[in-house]
Every structure is written in C-alpha cells, then in structure tokens.
Design a protein around this nucleic acid. Structure first.
Lengths: 343, 343
DNA sequence: TCAGCTTATGTAATCGATTACATCAAAGCT
DNA sequence: AGCTTTGATGTAATCGATTACATAAGCTGA
C-alpha cells in the first residue's frame, strides 16, 4: 500500500538535469539559471518531491533540531517557556525536541545522548539539578553540542544562562510587604538543593536584614514549588502561636495552595495574612483573591534562550564565555496583600 | 577546538574486527560470540563511541521520533498530555518533537513536512481544526506517516482517535446541576467550529431535553476556552434579567474566569450561581471555591495515544481502520455547586 | 585570436551507520 | 572420509541527500 516516495533522483530525471543541479536549484537558487530553476520547480511539483531530512542531516552533519530538558513536563509553568522556544526555533527552521529530565528512567546515558550531536544541534537545560558529572564527562570528550541554561542553572558549569534576578525578585516581595506595614514576614521555600530555592531564600534574608527585621527560623517553611506543599505550609502557619502577617512564597503554586488551605480553615487573605507569590502564572490574576506576585517574563525567557542557543550553533562558539542574560522581573500588586493589622 | 568524534570505524579498528561486527555486537548481541562482544564493548568504552543517530536513521529509514501538533503550546492544558506522551515514547526509544499548530507561520507546508516521513515516524494531532485538505493531500501521495488524533479530531478523516466522551461529560454536568434542584441551566461554550465545543454543546442540549428543560438561547454564552472569555461570559450573565442559576462551562479555565469576574462584582459562587467546569486542571481543586468539574484523564490520554501510535508505527498498519478509544470521564463534585435557591 | 575569468552544470565522493551476501572454519551426519 | 549445516565474521552495497572538483561554454580584453 505504501507508495513510492520520490527522491532527488526522480526529480533530476524528470527535469532532465543532474541531482546536483536539483539540490542547488532548491537550496541556493541564485547558483542556477532562471530557466533551470523553473524546470526543476516544475519537476518537483510534478513528482511531489520533498527532501529527506535525514539524508540532508547526515550529509551536512547537523540535525536542525534542538532539545529541551524539562524537569517535570507536567508542570504547566514550563508551557509558556516552551512556547517561546518553539516560536523562535521553528521560525529558524529548527525542530524542538522535549525530554522530561525527572522521569524515572532518565539516566546519564540519555542525557549524554542528547549532549552529543546525536539527536540535536544544541541543548536547552531548564533543570539545574542534573549531576555536574554530566557536564564534565561531556567536556572531556568535547564533542558536546552547544548548551544553554534557562531559569535554573548549575553552579561552576560555564554555560550561558538566561534567567531573572531571583534575589531581586525576592527583595521586591519582602519590601512590598514591609511597605504595607508588615514586620513579621515569613517565607515558603522551594525544594531543597534547588538554585532557585537558594537564591530566593538569600534574597529574602538579605531584604529582611536591610530592613532590620530579625529573621525567625520558625517562619521559614519548607515547600517544593507545588500546590500541595503550599497547603502543608498553611497548616504549619496555622499551628504557629506567633504568626507572620506577611508570607512570601517562592512560587505561585505554593501561594495559591497556601491561600486555599487557609480558606478551608476559615482564614482569609489578606485580612489574616498577606501573601506574595512568584512567577505570575496565568491564573494568578484571577484567583480569589487575585495574587500579588513577582512576574517572570516566561515567553520572553524561552524566546531569548532559543535565540542565544541558535547563535551559538551558527557561530559554533564555545560555551566558555558563559554570558548570563538577566531578564527583568517586576512586582504585580494585586489583592492578596494588604496593610498589616494595627498591632 | 572541536575534538574528533569517534565513529564505528574507530571502534572496529581498536577492537580488531570489522564495522559490521561492531554494529552487530551493539544491536544484536546474540549474533556474535561472547568473546567478540566483550572486546567490542571494551573498545567502545575506550574510544567513547556513541552511535550517530542520523546515520542510523538514514540507513534504517526511520527517525525514531514522533511529532506532536499542539494548538497553543502556551496553554497549560496540554502539559500533562505531553507528559504522558513523552513518558511512553521515551521508554520505547522515541524522541518527541513538538510544534505549535496555531503559530502564525505554521502553514500547510510545515504540516506536510511532518506528515511525510521527513522528520518523524508518526504524528499525534491535538488540533482538530487543521484544514482537511492536509489529510487528503497526504493520502493522495500516500507517503504519509501514521497519524493519531487525541482529544480533538476532524470529522470524516479516518484516523484512530483517543478521546473522552464529551457528550457524556456534558450530560453529567447538567444532570448534576439538575440533581441539585437547578432548573435554569446555562452553558458557556468553546471556540466556534471546534469539535469539543460542538460535542459539549450537543451533550448539554441533549441532557436539557431529557430533563424536559427548555433550552434558552440567551443562556448559551460564547467563549473560547480561555480564562478571559470566562470573564466575558460572567459579564453577559450579570446583564441578564432572568439569570440561570446553574452554569456549565466547557472548560475549567472559563469556569474560573467566570467565578473570578463574578467575585469582582460582589457575586458569590455557589450562593448566586452554581458553576461546573470541564477538564479538572490542577488548580481546580484548590480554587476558592473549589471547582466542581468533569475530569479528563489527561496523562492517560497522552500515554494511550503514544502507545497506539507506536503500535501503528511498528505494525505499519494503515490508518483506515480508524479505531476510536474512549477513555472514561467522571464528575468531581466540589464546592462551586450547591443547591438551587428555593424559588 | 587566445589566455584568463566567470557562470552553469555534471560526476562522483561523502556523511556514518546497517545489512545482504560471501566466506570460512568447525561441527554434525551418513 | 566426504558432504551438509551452522555460526561467526568480513566485504561492500546501500540509505538520499550535499558538495568538492571537473568540465564546458560564454565572455572579456590585449
């Protein structure tokens, strides 16, 4: 049933020219005569020819694809970033491969397979927690594809990174709460070991210090960016005898979980506690109350990352230079924060 | 700076065997002697060899990749479906390519490029609104890669489809509202022309009819699945003089937008109106109020779709048989629906 | 008129694996 | 012993494009 797939040979035959001419007519139109070009194009239409990407890839030693390593693909946070990447990549003729780096069967082998030029011409890593041996191993063989980090990154790995200033974001959050009169400020942090967790925590501490507020250990609650962990943090909050009146959550999901759980127990935001999130996911503006949060330009992060990677691929620059683009964050003030209760 | 990438030649040389033997040792271990296999493996480790996927693809006439056509990649609804797909595909050694079919520059050309065996061995289409010429054109040349629809589909195109029973889901929603005493039931529908819109609308109408409720034209509001359109629907609702007391929204996003906008204007759910969504996105259970909704098993839809596609690829069956797997929906009753006001 | 240059095209090598076919040694069978 | 079968390996064709190099024709200017 499978009909014959026309190849460049067939086009050449129909057009009465050589395969080289067909290839040139299609890829470098200026290098053949106008007449020949027209003949070839007619032959292509007649035969229904479309070039075989694989053969082209082999000969020209590239894949015209980039791969994106996403931690937890099911996390909707990444959808806009992927959208930004796909947008830029597809416009440049590149396909986008995605792989979930947090899948159970995602081992070193598989990472390496992507890091080499095997499947893609470049790699975007959104997961800062890949074991750093991966990168060393990679360097030792040095047949590595260009690599770019986005959002997250791994310390001491000299790779270009596109991200926001997480510390500054955290500062904005704390300062906003402080500006509303809050003096008892707590924090719900991300998963342990994560760079974002570390940075946002550091920003929070720094801001508290600058504002001459004593950080209290029991106001720093553990989370993992998920909605569920926000709910758990709310339970911890409720069990405190001396409660913070302002909470900065390191992700919107946690902030929403936090507010939701409090609501289930009769507490209200911002009456009982003001809450600031991080990310500005789509639903944040429509939650009840609407969520004050630190906006990350997610689509732009994706688009910028793709541009940087494509440049690296074309220029075949080495990763060594390790530029770091910091995209701006801004605080979006909404309904989940209000003045601190008069003491 | 780019070091030499070892090829099968080099391994053969180091191991003192032919390239054919190396290939066999790696791909069909049983066909070489144990001794040779060990030698080859040692040589592979020594050289740091990893096979070149492109070369393998060309020779074996496949790409080991599948492509997923997503309408609006930025829509987080798809993240779990992608996760399900990636899960199954990667386990079987396939890469997953994604492309946003709603991008401005996504034309027929590009679709066709994917439909042929050029870039992928199979295609998953999540967008039912691709022009049907695409499929016909495809058939006429018949060099088409196996195709599977998921969630959405296009009528009269004989392609296997994995989806839920949208009409049944809509029925559940309406019956639930009816069971709570609601007799004035409205609907917010999806984008015009979409199959899901049509099916959910049909299910709604059928249920109303069965329950002997007169459908009222002005209680059927237009939307497009987005949060924003849910807000707009809320504005329409507020302008009605005779308002429905129960609303079934064809997506969770619209339901959340609907509730949010009402809340901004002092209305409360479910006191003033009960709301049912569709999809059961992650935040639904944590919204305030938590959202009653029709759950789609999104991860499972993705996984099943990938399995079906891989089977087609392996079996190289034609699409003609057009099986249709209907996965179960269930209603998740939460806080956004309550008893109808006593009239 | 002819060397020298440009332009258009053809010939054949090449990318790096897989695999059909050939070869050869060892084992099995009558 | 002589013939067939089996198993392990090597040789070389092959997948379908791109492209280095060769060639031929046309053009320029001394």
């Amino acid at each position: 049933m499978n009909r014959y797939v026309p190849k460049i040979q067939d086009v050449a035959h129909v057009a009465g020219v050589s395969t080289a001419t067909v290839s040139r007519a299609l890829n470098k139109p200026d290098s053949v005569s106008e007449e020949t070009r027209a003949t070839v194009i007619r032959a292509v239409e007649k035969t229904g020819y479309r070039f075989n990407q694989t053969a082209r890839n082999l000969r020209s030693r590239k894949t015209s694809a980039i791969v994106v390593l996403v931690p937890h693909l099911s996390n909707p946070f990444f959808s806009q970033i992927l959208s930004g990447i796909e947008n830029v990549a597809s416009r440049a003729g590149y396909s986008v491969l995605i792989a979930d780096s947090k899948q159970p069967d995602f081992g070193h082998d598989r990472i390496l397979e992507y890091m080499r030029y095997n499947r893609a011409d470049g790699v975007i890593v959104l997961d800062g927690s890949l074991p750093s041996e991966v990168y060393q191993n990679d360097q030792s063989f040095d047949s590595a594809a260009p690599l770019v980090f986005a959002c997250e990154w791994t310390d001491d790995v000299p790779v270009p990174t596109i991200r926001i200033d997480n510390q500054a974001g955290a500062r904005m959050a704390v300062e906003h709460l402080h500006g509303l009169g809050h003096r008892k400020i707590g924090h719900v942090s991300g998963p342990p070991g994560n760079v974002l967790t570390r940075e946002r925590l550091a920003g929070t501490r720094a801001a508290l210090e600058e504002l001459k507020l004593q950080p209290r250990q029991d106001w720093f609650l553990d989370g993992d960016f998920s909605i569920e962990s926000g709910c758990k943090a709310a339970q911890s909050w409720m069990q405190l005898t001396d409660r913070p009146t302002g909470m900065f959550c390191a992700s919107d999901q946690m902030a929403l979980g936090f507010i939701s759980e409090l609501s289930n127990h009769g507490y209200q935001v911002p009456r009982d506690v003001s809450v600031v999130g991080f990310d500005d996911i789509e639903i944040a503006g429509r939650f009840i109350p609407s969520l004050t949060t630190i906006r990350q330009p997610r689509h732009e992060i994706g688009a910028t990352t793709a541009s940087v990677l494509l440049e690296r691929i074309k220029g075949s620059k080495r990763n060594g230079e390790a530029i770091c683009k910091i995209l701006p964050v801004e605080i979006i003030i909404r309904g989940s924060t209000g003045p601190a209760p008069l003491h």
